[in-house]
Design a protein around this nucleic acid. Structure first.
Length: 479
RNA sequence: GGUGGCAUAGCCAAGCGGUAAGGCGACGGAUUGCAAAUCCGUUAUUCCCCGGUUCAAAUCCGGGUGCCACCUCCA
């Protein structure tokens, strides 16, 4: 059974056939590092990390390239506005991005090329395009001539004449077609520059992905991924440039759905984002802090990668509750070091019902990486496990854990992160709580339940919830 | 206006021709001094609407309606 992938370009599902047997070359567009990371920037990496993990589980060697756009108009604007050197800005936000990837257990990315490391290659690429008569100079840069492209628009499904009818004001009259895009932008005073045959300037946005992917993966590679919003114009233009030079480029395109709130896409330009309280909900730092990185990863994998994901609080809370229940059942198993070996997990001899769950799980992932369906089977397996006992139950729970781990879930430390972060409460708070609970324990010992209930209710009103266990009590903040 | 996509229980979400996975929540029971947690059980005769094809449709076809995305920077 081979892995099936829904290809955005051909608009159909087809068996994955690698260019090199046993290997996968994957390129996923990364962030422009000019501001705090928001959850949309992390969705792609998490999803494609799960996909890469599944390829590995199926025995493939995966090379996974995720670029960093570290020169761009927005970075320059930010630098001019704040007075901070652009390099300091990009370095800070790149480091932040890497930190979030680590917290989210994104471990499969093998290369993080930075745009500014490939300027020479980009200049050479543009020279080739000019030599092939696919690009031309204007007073402010070099542009790609889309009308020379035979199938321009094949990815996003649009036609050149249709695009002309769209109102595109303020495009230079020097352009041969309003949708022609910049390959090289000549610098204005005060902007960072690189020397080129056309004058000092910087590369256009679309160029970097064509250049870096071919440099690292070759002129033909297996899969190109990215957010659905990049289909047009970004990916369309990548295809145009690369095919103009005879590259066969990506054999298959995968696009992930976008972040929504209340059914509407969330993006930086959204008017709702002007409200800082609202905007905060999509900042990676806040989300990871509030729900825990494992919840965010789990939540993203509960849906299908091509569908939009709604980050409203109810949904995140539901995900956290489900994951918390599962981790609680796994207990110590979830804290054991991760030594999961896919081959061993697949080969394990199991009672028939468990083996069937495992097969269903694999089938779901082989079918266009249906992580949500796969996780449904994991929960069903958990319910099966509860009906078993002793060694059999342990084996079933171990399978739950290991199937999850193939996707980067249920790892050591996860449970602690989604339980409320004790670091936020502080040591003093811990001591106070311990004291209060001791008093309550004493009241209970002498059957003064009126008092013990008063303490518990009073704490509950502060959103601190006490739970009695045999001989001791525990507490937690929030639902 | 053009181009894609989606409509399944209170919410999220799978299924894509053979008689509705799973999660959250809710409800009932066990347990508990009472709770919480845990365990057991219940929770869509039906898949936006109307036609059609078929022995059989949530799944296919035609026509509606509603929502979303892209066409401008966006992961």
């Amino acid at each position: 059974m081979s892995i099936q992938i829904q290809d955005s370009l051909r608009r159909r599902k087809a068996p994955f056939r690698p260019l090199v047997p046993g290997q996968v070359s994957l390129y996923v567009c990364g962030p422009t590092v000019y501001d705090d990371c928001h959850i949309g920037h992390l969705m792609g990496p998490v999803i494609f990390d799960a996909i890469a993990r599944w390829f590995r589980s199926r025995g493939y060697l995966v090379r996974f390239v995720n670029n960093i756009t570290d020169i761009d108009d927005k970075i320059i604007q930010r630098a001019l506005k704040s007075g901070e050197p652009w390099l300091a800005i990009t370095q800070r936000y790149t480091a932040q991005y890497f930190e979030f990837l680590k917290k989210l257990h994104v471990v499969t990315i093998t290369d993080h090329p930075r745009c500014t490391e490939y300027i020479d290659e980009m200049i050479a690429f543009v020279e080739e395009l000019i030599a092939a008569d696919r690009a031309y100079k204007t007073s402010d840069g070099v542009y790609y001539d889309i009308q020379r492209q035979e199938h321009y628009g094949k990815l996003s499904g649009r036609k050149l004449d249709e695009m002309l009818s769209g109102v595109r004001v303020e495009r230079s009259e020097e352009l041969r077609h309003p949708a022609d895009f910049a390959l090289w932008k000549l610098a204005k005073p005060g902007e960072p520059t690189w020397e080129s045959p056309w004058g000092a300037g910087r590369p256009g946005w679309h160029l970097e992905c064509s250049v870096m992917s071919s440099s690292l993966l070759g002129q033909a590679f297996d899969i190109h991924g990215g957010g659905d919003d990049l289909k047009f114009p970004h990916h369309e233009n990548e295809i145009a440039q690369s095919e103009a030079l005879g590259h066969s480029y990506a054999q298959c395109w995968m696009h992930n759905g976008l972040i929504q709130y209340g059914g509407v896409k969330i993006a930086k330009s959204d008017p709702r984002m002007k409200d800082p309280e609202f905007a905060r909900q999509f900042q990676a730092a806040w989300l990871l802090d509030t729900y825990g990185a494992p919840t965010i990863r789990f939540f993203l994998l509960q849906g299908h990668y091509r569908s939009p994901v709604d980050f409203k609080p109810e949904n995140l809370q539901a995900a956290r509750a489900g994951l918390a229940r599962l981790l609680k059942q796994l207990g110590a198993l979830a804290e054991e070091a991760d030594e999961t070996n896919a081959e061993e997990v697949f080969a394990r001899t199991l009672p028939l019902p468990l083996a069937e769950r495992r097969a269903a799980y694999c089938e779901a992932l082989d079918d266009d990486f249906s992580t949500g369906r796969a996780l449904g089977h994991v929960f069903a397996l958990l319910n099966d496990a509860k009906k078993l006992a002793g060694k059999e139950q342990h084996e079933a729970l171990r399978l739950v854990r290991d199937l999850g781990r193939l996707l980067g879930l249920f790892l050591p430390g996860d449970a602690a992160q989604i339980a409320d972060d004790e670091a936020h409460h502080g040591e003093l708070f811990e001591q106070v709580m311990s004291f209060v609970l001791t008093l309550r324990q004493e009241a209970r010992a002498r059957k003064d339940f009126a008092l013990s209930d008063r303490i518990r209710d009073g704490l509950a009103a502060l959103d601190i919830h006490v739970e009695d266990k045999a001989g001791s009590s525990t507490w937690r903040v929030g639902s």
